[in-house]
Design a protein around this nucleic acid. Structure first.
Lengths: 180, 180
DNA sequence: GCGTTAAAGCAATGATATTTGCTTTAGTTA
DNA sequence: TAACTAAAGCAAATATCATTGCTTTAACGC
């Protein structure tokens, strides 16, 4: 009774990739709320059943694909200066959500009541922890503060006020978080 | 060609009220993502068509009902002290989203791509403006700062980390916004 | 290569959601 | 209280989504 051997290459990989492109197009066109699985399947030239069996429903699919797009394994800024690190990191995230597609996926990937945090946001918290821990006792900054004052405003704007995500938002937020 | 005379009383009012109760029950039971229009129609003892014609789709309906739940015409705190006013106001909002029902409605009412801000959040911004303007030049505080540092963290937590909405969150956030 | 079987495709089915034209009810104003 | 007609109700027709058993394809390990 060992775990079945996964077959992730070849056709499966092609299908997955086609689905990703299809989802990205459709989310851009209609908004994440309105992409349905049969829709994605048709656009991707793939059978709906394949999607149902892989993810079960649309939110799960979106969440998975959103996570994929901001690489969880990318390297974090590490200049040695907390302010610079935070600014670079936050800037990266603002840049990410400035793309309408990513903002739309964020909106659509909102967790259902009682569900767990989305993968995408859990990753942000892990990164915040790394950055503040690296700074050590020099700056008494908690991950919660970073989430509340950097991530929350960015995500809030991405969801509700996407047109206010300008290039220097990250810098402004960091300045308020770490006054000179 | 004048605007048709609305008939909001009597039966229409009863229908609206029944729908509100039904939505609230259903959101509590299944989460906002999963309430469908035929579902609330049945629960409310109302014809689905009435809902389709009034709102068009479920997100619009949720947004409207969410707006109603935090009364846009309630009076704002007005102690004369900016810090106290902000704390009371933010506390009210935290309290609101501590009720799982309201958090769920918030999640479900998320705007679709390209759409306008939801009514509910637009109201928050109006309120923020009133509060900071009332304080005048004494405190150089902009509505944007209030949104970024009070509303955004609260809403972010309500959506993604609802279990972190504790009673003194509002106070902590205000303290960070207006250091002693 | 070859065999095993995971994963994709297909098709039929049942369940839901949405639209639409028409009828009925009853809110509003005079 | 009567006329006007907005809004609700009804029912039939569509459209869409989701599930399931079975068949076909082709990835992976030897």
């Amino acid at each position: 009774m060992s775990a079945p051997v996964r077959r992730t290459g070849g056709r499966s990989a092609a299908v997955l990739s086609a689905i990703r492109y299809a989802v990205e197009d459709l989310v851009r066109e209609r908004g994440a709320e309105k992409v349905t699985i049969p829709m994605v399947a048709e656009r991707a030239g793939v059978n709906p059943t394949s999607i149902y069996r892989r993810w079960g429903d649309a939110p799960a699919m979106l969440n998975d694909i959103a996570t994929y797009r901001l690489d969880p394994d990318r390297s974090l800024p590490r200049t040695g200066d907390l302010r610079a690190d935070l600014a670079a990191w936050a800037g990266e995230i603002v840049e990410h959500y400035r793309k309408p597609l990513n903002a739309a996926i964020l909106r659509g990937g909102t967790p259902t009541a009682g569900e767990r945090e989305t993968d995408c946001l859990r990753n942000r918290r892990t990164e915040a922890l790394q950055i503040v821990e690296r700074a050590g006792a020099a700056h008494p900054l908690t991950a919660d503060e970073v989430i509340d004052q950097l991530i929350a405003p960015i995500v809030y704007r991405a969801i509700f006020l996407p047109w206010t995500l300008d290039e220097d938002l990250a810098a402004r937020l960091v300045d308020r978080l770490l006054p000179a």
